[in-house]
Simulated assay, not measured.
Amino acid sequence: MASRSAREVAYETIRSRIITMDLKPGDELNDRELAQELGISRTPMREALIMLNIAHMVVIKPQSGTHVAPIDLKLMEMEQFARFTLEKEILNRIRGRLTAEQEAAYRLNLESYRQLERDPDAENRETRMLDLDNAFHRRAFQLCGMEEHFDHMLSTFQHIERLRKFSLQTEENKSVCAAHTRILEAVLRGSEEDLSRALSDHLNRYKLSVEQARQHHPEYFTEGTVRPVDHRI
């Protein structure tokens, strides 16, 4: 497999730092400093920032510089609807078909999450909780032999992933285990309607996280899509 280009490394590194809120909305991005930090030239860094601008994660304004884009609520809604539509289809493919071993793996995931909930001082707690959350949702795709679909879906989401970082710092994170349990019970014994409702209720709770996050950082959000600047390389 060919090694990743400097541009790809820069893109993935900056994207990850934006999603994890290491780089926050409004933070200035200096291509020279970032290039030096990653040990690459400025050209691939500038190309990576242009790619991030197209993905609505970075705002490039002539004379004003480059900054981390605010969380776009409209794009967030679109991302979450796309996720609900795809994940509902995948969950229905395994509904009523889990083996005892597969159910046990789901329940181990839930218990691991609960343990982290009870231990606010656990090392790398937020990252581990996000990983367990993703693992829960990815499992159905794995059982269908379609885990690449989940990975691709997650890699294309920009705005909802940043919000998930906020939700772990609010009371909303305490709803995750109960919501996952309802989804699992619907997969085990529920109807298609039960499953749709459980998944919808879970994925739509992001709106409560938005409300809480905006109380503390209203400047982090925008109501509509920001059109990328046309920068030609």
Rank of each mutant, 00 (worst) to 15 (best):
M1K: 12
A2C: 10
A2I: 07
R7N: 03
V9Q: 07
I14F: 00
R15A: 01
S16H: 15
S16F: 14
R17I: 04
I18K: 03
M21S: 15
M21E: 13
D22Y: 09
L23S: 08
G26A: 06
E28G: 02
D31H: 15
E33H: 11
E33Q: 13
E37Y: 10
L38N: 10
G39K: 05
S41F: 02
T43L: 07
P44K: 08
R46L: 13
R46N: 13
A48C: 09
A48H: 03
L49C: 02
L49P: 07
H56L: 09
M57K: 09
K61I: 10
P62W: 11
Q63Y: 14
D72I: 01
M76S: 12
M76Q: 11
Q80N: 15
Q80G: 08
R83Y: 04
T85F: 08
L86T: 09
E87A: 00
N92K: 08
N92G: 04
R93P: 01
G96L: 04
R97M: 13
T99V: 13
E101N: 04
E101R: 02
Q102C: 00
A105W: 04
R107Y: 06
L110I: 04
Y113C: 04
Y113I: 03
Q115M: 06
L116A: 07
E117Q: 14
R118E: 14
D119W: 03
D121G: 15
D121Q: 15
R125H: 07
R125N: 06
T127H: 10
T127P: 05
T127I: 14
L130G: 12
L130P: 02
L132C: 02
N134R: 10
N134Y: 01
F136A: 01
H137F: 00
R138W: 01
C144M: 09
D151S: 05
L154C: 13
Q158C: 12
Q158G: 11
H159C: 11
I160A: 07
E161R: 15
R164G: 01
K165W: 13
L168K: 09
Q169T: 10
E171W: 00
E172Y: 01
N173P: 00
N173V: 14
V176T: 10
A178Y: 07
A179Y: 01
H180D: 00
R182C: 01
R182A: 11
L184Y: 08
L184D: 07
A186V: 03
R189E: 13
S191P: 07
E192A: 15
E192H: 13
E193A: 12
D194V: 03
D194C: 06
L195M: 04
S196Y: 04
S196W: 04
A198G: 05
S200H: 15
D201E: 12
H202E: 08
H202F: 14
L203H: 05
R205T: 08
Y206T: 04
V210K: 06
Q212F: 14
E219V: 00
E219C: 05
T222E: 08
T222M: 06
E223L: 10
T225C: 10
D230E: 11
H231Q: 11
